[in-house]
């Protein structure tokens, strides 16, 4: 019990240190550059305490729950030896975690509003919803496919650089064909797909797989799943834009 408390206090101290830079930046710009008083000081104080507590609980739970479950599932799949099931699991994990991702929903609906005001789609709610949903499912499918490719790479031991750099070349080529209004959104969609819960799980899955399979180095083969998940959405969203126009 006492030991647990010590771990928790250490995590709490770490969270304070992690948030110190943001506090300094905001205080500096507010007082020195914009020269304005801090609004709603009590709200900000309560908010900061919540953020610190939240980060502490998150890190604490990460090591207890998310990392172990990701690794134990990876080991179980590796022992079972069924590649098909592993790949299905990989797709579900990628698709399922992305389709409900709040950041993606927010970006998709914002993109729809901007696209409607730019006259690319109709200004009706139905057209905007259709566009936003299309964007969401496109990105979710792309992430599912990315995790499948990433897992396949770990199983086969393919070097990551050829796959990722090849993907970049595809992005560059498609950029010159895709309509201009989709490019910014496409580039951004790569970044928003990987949420705070998906990242630790997927990382633990990759590292767990690479340590369970003989001849794989967890450092070289275990990481890289996130990289795939941020690459494929760019390609598929540009494709979506090309199909629409």
């Amino acid at each position: 019990m006492k030991q647990q408390l010590m771990i928790f206090l250490k995590a709490l101290f770490g969270s304070c240190k992690d948030l110190l830079p943001i506090m300094l930046v905001i205080a500096f710009f507010q007082f020195a550059v914009l020269q304005q008083p801090m609004p709603n000081l009590s709200d900000i104080f309560v908010g900061l305490i919540l953020v610190i507590l939240g980060l502490t609980f998150f890190i604490y739970g990460l090591e207890m729950g998310l990392f172990p479950i990701g690794e134990s599932m990876a080991k179980a799949f590796a022992q079972k030896g069924s590649t098909t099931w592993l790949l299905i699991f990989a797709f579900c994990l990628g698709f399922g975690t992305t389709v409900a991702e709040p950041a993606l929903i927010a970006v998709a609906s914002e993109a729809a509003t901007v696209a409607a005001s730019g006259g690319i789609i109709g200004a009706t709610d139905i057209a905007q919803n259709e566009y936003a949903n299309g964007l969401r499912y496109t990105v979710a499918f792309a992430v599912g496919l990315a995790i499948v490719m990433g897992v396949l790479r770990i199983l086969r031991g393919w070097p990551i650089q050829y796959l990722i750099l090849g993907g970049y070349i595809v992005v560059v080529i498609m950029t010159s064909f895709a309509p201009t209004w989709i490019i910014g959104i496409a580039y951004d969609s790569g970044g928003v797909t990987t949420s705070t819960i998906t990242v630790p799980l997927v990382t633990a899955l990759g590292v767990g797989l690479a340590s369970a399979i003989k001849g794989r180095n967890p450092m070289i083969d275990g990481f890289g799943l996130i990289a795939f998940a941020s690459l494929t959405p760019m390609i598929f969203v540009m494709l979506y834009g090309m199909v629409l126009s």
């Binding site: 908010g47 953020v51 939240g54 609980f57 090591e63 729950g65 819960i197």
Partner: peptide, 16 residues
């Protein structure tokens, strides 16, 4: 418990 802490933590974090 780990999942529970992650959920509570994220909710506090986002609210803050």
């Amino acid at each position: 418990f780990g999942f529970f802490y992650v959920l509570i933590g994220l909710a506090f974090f986002l609210l803050g």
